[in-house]
Amino acid sequence: MTKKRALVTGVTGQDGNHLASLLQDEGYEVYGLIRGQNNPKRAEFEARHPHVRLVEGDLTDPAALIRAVDLSDPDELYNLGAVSHVGYSFKNPSLTESVTGKGVLNVLEAVRVTGRSERTRVYQASTSEMFGGLDYNRPGAGYDEDSLFHPRSPYGVAKLYGHWISRNYRESYGMFVSCGILFNHEGEFRGPEFVTRKITQAVARIARGMQEYVVLGDLWPKRDWGYAGDYVRGMWKMLQHDRPDDFVLATGETHSIEEFLSLAFRTVGIDDWTPYVKQDAAFMRPAEVDILLGNPAKAEEQLGWVREVSFEKLVELMVRHDLDALAGLESAR
C-alpha cells in the first residue's frame, strides 16, 4: 500500500515536532520545510525525527516553495511556518507581514501552479489572535467560526490575511484548504520566548537554586490554554474530513498568567510565588488582548475532536519536563 505523503512548513517549531510524530504514527512519508543550512533547531530536530526528509526553503521564496511541493508531491500540506511571536511582530511588522501573511499566498500558489489543486489538501494555521479580545458575537460563549475579527497586533493582522486568502483560494479554485483557528496551545516543545515556557523554565531553575527570579510583563491577561499535542491531532482531523472548512480548537475556559504562575510554582512546592517574580514595562505590548476564550463545539461535533490534557496537567507537564531537562544536563557533566 502506497504511503500518504505530507509536507510540513515550520516543521522545527512546537506544532511541527508534534505533527512529525503524529504523521509517522499514521504511516505517512513526511517532508519538512526548513530555512537555511545553519538553522539552530536542525540538529535537535533531526535527532528526534530521523524519519523526516528536510527540504530547504523559505515562505518568502515562491520558487523554493514550488521546488518543495514538486519534490514532496504531498497528499497533505500543513502550513505551520510563521513569525509567530506576538511581541516580536510589533518590533518587526514588515517581516511578519512577509512571512506570516504573504507566505500563505506563496504556499497556496505553489500548490496551484504545480497542478495539485485538486489533489493536495492544505491546512492553514490561523489563530485566535485574529479576534483581538473584542466584540464577542455571543458574550460568555467564546469565539466561534462566525465571530468578528479585530486583530490587535501585526501578527494577528498578518494571520488574518493568511486566513482570508486561504478561504479565497478554497472558493475561487475549489482547493481543499481548511483553516484551524487555534487558541493558545503550549507544551514541552514551546520556545523559551513565549511566556508559558519562560515561566516553566524559570520555575525549574529557581527550584534548583540556579535562578533568583523571573521578569515578566502584565500578569492579568487571560488565555484559553490547551496542550499542543491535542491540537495537532485536531489539525490532522481537519484534513481527513469530507470537506474543507474552518474550525476553532479551544478548551472553552480561560486562565490568567497569574494562575499559570501559581500552578507552576506549586508544582515545585512553592505556594507564595511573589518573591520570585518581577515585572518590567519592556515586556508589555503596545496593545494587549485582555481575554481570549474559544468555543470548540463545531470541531467536537463534526471532527470528533476532544482535548485530553487539562490546564492543570499542562502546567505540571511543562514544569516537570524542564526539571528533567536540568537534571539531564547536570548528570551529563
Rank of each mutant, 00 (worst) to 15 (best):
residue 119 R to H: 15
residue 88 Y to H: 13
residue 86 V to Q: 10
residue 98 S to C: 06
residue 159 K to F: 08
residue 140 G to I: 11
residue 152 R to A: 04
residue 105 L to H: 14
residue 152 R to K: 09
residue 141 A to W: 12
residue 135 D to K: 14
residue 129 E to P: 01
residue 114 T to W: 00
residue 85 H to L: 14
residue 132 G to N: 01
residue 132 G to V: 01
residue 118 E to V: 05
residue 100 T to E: 03
residue 99 V to S: 02
residue 88 Y to P: 00
residue 134 L to W: 10
residue 160 L to Q: 06
residue 76 E to S: 04
residue 155 Y to H: 13
residue 107 V to L: 01
residue 147 S to V: 10
residue 83 V to N: 11
residue 102 K to N: 09
residue 154 P to T: 04
residue 144 D to H: 11
residue 114 T to N: 05
residue 126 S to L: 02
residue 122 V to S: 05
residue 135 D to H: 15
residue 95 L to W: 01
residue 124 Q to M: 06
residue 148 L to F: 13
residue 162 G to M: 05
residue 97 E to D: 13
residue 136 Y to N: 08
residue 122 V to N: 04
residue 122 V to E: 04
residue 87 G to A: 15
residue 143 Y to L: 10
residue 93 P to T: 03
residue 150 H to W: 12
residue 139 P to D: 06
residue 125 A to H: 13
residue 135 D to A: 14
residue 107 V to C: 06
residue 75 D to M: 02
residue 93 P to F: 01
residue 129 E to D: 14
residue 134 L to I: 14
residue 84 S to Q: 12
residue 81 G to H: 08
residue 131 F to N: 06
residue 89 S to H: 04
residue 108 L to S: 05
residue 146 D to V: 12
residue 158 A to M: 10
residue 84 S to L: 11
residue 125 A to D: 11
residue 88 Y to T: 11
residue 151 P to Q: 04
residue 79 N to A: 11
residue 82 A to C: 10
residue 84 S to Y: 13
residue 148 L to H: 11
residue 136 Y to D: 13
residue 134 L to C: 11
residue 156 G to V: 08
residue 111 V to I: 15
residue 127 T to C: 05
residue 88 Y to E: 13
residue 103 G to E: 01
residue 147 S to D: 14
residue 130 M to C: 12
residue 83 V to F: 06
residue 124 Q to A: 07
residue 112 R to I: 03
residue 95 L to N: 04
residue 94 S to E: 13
residue 110 A to M: 00
residue 114 T to S: 09
residue 135 D to R: 15
residue 95 L to Y: 05
residue 105 L to V: 08
residue 100 T to I: 04
residue 98 S to P: 00
residue 81 G to R: 09
residue 93 P to N: 04
residue 136 Y to T: 07
residue 151 P to C: 07
residue 139 P to A: 12
residue 74 P to I: 11
residue 127 T to L: 02
residue 99 V to W: 00
residue 125 A to P: 03
residue 111 V to N: 01
residue 156 G to C: 09
residue 96 T to P: 05
residue 99 V to K: 00
residue 126 S to G: 15
residue 113 V to D: 06
residue 86 V to Y: 04
residue 146 D to K: 12
residue 162 G to H: 07
residue 101 G to L: 07
